[in-house]
Design a binder for these strands. Sequence first.
DNA 1: TTTCAAGTGGAGTTACCAACTCCGTTTACC
DNA 2: GGTAAACGGAGTTGGTAACTCCACTTGAAA
Lengths: 223, 223
Amino acid sequence: MNKMTTRARPLRADAVRNREKILAAAATVFARRGLDATLDEVALEAGVGVGTVYRRFPDKDTLIGALFENAVDEIATIALSAYEAENSWDGLVWFLSEALQRQCVNRGLREIVIGAPYARERMESVKCRIAPAITQLIERAQRDGFLRDDVVSADFAILEMMISSLGCMTEEFSPDLWRRYLTIVLDGLVVKREHPTSLEQPLDESVAEEALRLKSRHVLRVH
Amino acid sequence: MNKMTTRARPLRADAVRNREKILAAAATVFARRGLDATLDEVALEAGVGVGTVYRRFPDKDTLIGALFENAVDEIATIALSAYEAENSWDGLVWFLSEALQRQCVNRGLREIVIGAPYARERMESVKCRIAPAITQLIERAQRDGFLRDDVVSADFAILEMMISSLGCMTEEFSPDLWRRYLTIVLDGLVVKREHPTSLEQPLDESVAEEALRLKSRHVLRVH
DNA sequence: TTTCAAGTGGAGTTACCAACTCCGTTTACC
DNA sequence: GGTAAACGGAGTTGGTAACTCCACTTGAAA
C-alpha cells in the first residue's frame, strides 16, 4: 500500500517543486512571525500564488500540522534522552536548554507547544509523550536532592512558557538573551547554593535599551 | 484660573453622572480585558451609548490616559517608599510584590507599564520616575550583599514583564499563582541560600490542569 | 411653562485584515 | 499537439474595531 493507492497520478514535476518551495517558505515565515502569519505571506516568500498554496494544502491547519509534527516529536525525543544523562540535574538543565532553544528560534513552534489554536488534534498525541517524560526527569532530580521538592511538572510548563515568550520577543536583537533568565530561574529551582551561577549571556547597555523598547510591541492576546 | 476658564458652561448634571459611569466602566473593562477592549464594550458596561463615550472622551487614548495616570504614578510612589525599608532585600521584595500585584489584577495597567501603544507620551513622564527609583533599590540590595551582583535594572523590567504576563493569564482561576513564580525567581536572585523559600501559593491538581489548558488561549501579538 | 442648547443612543460608516475561492491563462507530459 | 493538471492573483466573504451622524430626549435658564 503506497502513495499511488490514494492518488491516481503522481504530482507533476513543477507541482512537486512548488510543494517543496511552499514548505520551506512556510517554515521560514512561521518561525519568524508565528502562526498568525497569513498564507499570502507564505506564498510571497515561496514565490508562488496563494492559489497554489491552497491547491497543495487545503487549509492553514493542514500546512501547520505537516510542518510542526516533526519538530514537536523532536522535543519529546529530547525529553527521553535527557533521562539517559548520568547526572539528573544536568539532564534536566540540558532538556530545558534544548527545548527552549528550539522554541525561542521558532515562534511557530513555541505557539504549537503552548497549545495555540492550530492543528490541535494532530499535535495532541505527540505532546502526550512529552508530559510523562518531563515528570520523570523532575522526580529523579528531586530524589537526587538537586531540585527543590515543592515544584511539579506543571510548574515547568509554566516556567518554560514564561522564558520562551521572552525568548521570542528578544530573538531578533539578542537571540540568546533568554539563557540569562533560564540561569536565574534554575538558580531558584536548585535546593541550595553557595554562589550565583554565572550568567553567560550578557545584557549590555544597547541590548537593555532595545529590550525595554521592543517589549512594548508585544501584547498578550486572548482568543 | 479654574475649570470655568476653559469651559463656558459646566457639564449638565446627567452628563456628569454619565462621565463617572463611563470612567468606572472603563476601569472595569480595561482591567479585565486589557487595552484591546473596545469602547463599545465600555459603553455597554456603563449602560450608555457609544456616542456618549465619544462625546466625553474624543478618542480611546484620552480615556486610557485619564484612567491610568494615577495607577502608574502609584507604582512610582511604591518604588520610592521601598527605599525607606530598613532591610534593603525586604524593600526590593516588597516593591516587586506590590507592583506585580497591581499589574496582575489589571491587564490594562500591565500593558501600559510594559509600554503598549496607547497614551504613550502621556505616560512617558510618569514612567521616567520609576526607572531610577528601581535602580537605587537594586544597587542598595547589591551593596548589602543580598542581591546577586550580575543583574541590572533592565533585568528587573524583563523579569517583571515575564511574571506579570503569567499573572494576567492565570488571574481568573488562581489570582495569586504568580507569587509562586516570583518566589522561585527571587530564590534565583539572592546571592546564596541554604533552603528554598517556601512557596506560599499552592499549585493543586485542578489549577495545574487549568493553567495548561488556558495558557493556550493566550498568544503573543506583535504590533 | 416654555425653549433650546446640550446631551443621548445606537445604527451606520469607514477602514482594515485574513482565510479562502474562482477562473482565465500557462505548462508538463503522453 | 492535445489536454488535464497546475498556476497566479484579483476578488469574495466574513469579521472586527474606531469613530460619526442625526433624530430624538432632557436639564435648566428665562
